[in-house]
Simulated assay, not measured.
Amino acid sequence: MSEVETKPVVSESRVRVRYAETDQMGVVYHANYLVWFEIGRVDFIRGLGMDYRSMEREDGLGIAVVDVSARYKAPARYDDELRIETRLVAARGAVIKFGYKVMRNSDDVVLCEGETVHVVVDREMKKRSLPEKYASRFAAVLI
């Protein structure tokens, strides 16, 4: 457990805006932020020493998105390098909540802030509590 306690509470991921992610106005299409939230979430879980693929294949569980919110503050444009900060907001029973901040790396301007709420499900998409081996790691970064 001591290894988990030394991990940062906020993980950081980087992406570069591809041309295909922009709209006719030359700014990032809003739905791409949800993809970047996922990148941050997967990196956060990996940073805790867990692997989402193993959670699915070995433990037969998924983390289904049930709610998303995003507040857009400034536009991102083609070739901007972005930094995604991800943190765990809550983890209790079957519910997990992550928070995100997407910033342009060159000037640290906050472009978008958001949250996702997830429910832990089994292979049949039935709600179940997060197994202790994952719950304890999440609890360690909520303290």
Rank of each mutant, 00 (worst) to 15 (best):
17 V>D: 07
18 R>V: 05
19 Y>E: 10
21 E>T: 06
22 T>P: 04
23 D>E: 10
24 Q>L: 06
25 M>G: 01
25 M>C: 04
26 G>D: 09
26 G>Y: 09
27 V>D: 03
29 Y>R: 09
30 H>A: 12
30 H>L: 02
31 A>W: 00
31 A>Y: 05
32 N>I: 02
34 L>W: 02
35 V>N: 04
35 V>I: 13
37 F>D: 05
38 E>M: 02
38 E>R: 00
39 I>R: 06
40 G>Q: 03
41 R>S: 12
42 V>P: 00
42 V>T: 14
42 V>E: 00
42 V>G: 01
42 V>R: 00
43 D>F: 01
43 D>P: 01
45 I>C: 05
46 R>F: 11
46 R>E: 11
50 M>T: 01
50 M>S: 02
50 M>P: 01
50 M>K: 12
52 Y>V: 09
57 R>S: 14
57 R>L: 14
57 R>F: 02
58 E>C: 11
58 E>D: 15
59 D>S: 14
60 G>S: 00
61 L>K: 08
62 G>M: 14
62 G>C: 02
62 G>W: 04
63 I>W: 10
63 I>D: 03
65 V>I: 15
65 V>Y: 12
65 V>T: 13
67 D>N: 15
70 A>Y: 05
70 A>H: 09
71 R>M: 09
74 A>K: 11
75 P>C: 10
75 P>D: 14
76 A>M: 00
77 R>E: 08
78 Y>I: 08
79 D>R: 08
80 D>K: 12
81 E>P: 01
82 L>N: 11
83 R>N: 03
83 R>V: 10
84 I>C: 02
84 I>Q: 03
84 I>K: 04
87 R>V: 04
87 R>D: 08
91 A>S: 13
91 A>H: 11
91 A>I: 08
91 A>G: 08
93 G>T: 02
93 G>P: 00
94 A>F: 07
95 V>E: 09
96 I>G: 01
96 I>F: 00
97 K>N: 01
100 Y>L: 14
101 K>F: 00
101 K>S: 04
103 M>V: 13
103 M>Y: 07
103 M>Q: 10
104 R>P: 08
104 R>K: 06
105 N>A: 13
105 N>R: 05
105 N>T: 13
106 S>F: 10
106 S>G: 05
109 V>S: 08
109 V>R: 15
110 V>Q: 08
112 C>Q: 05
113 E>R: 14
114 G>I: 14
114 G>V: 11
114 G>A: 15
115 E>M: 13
116 T>C: 05
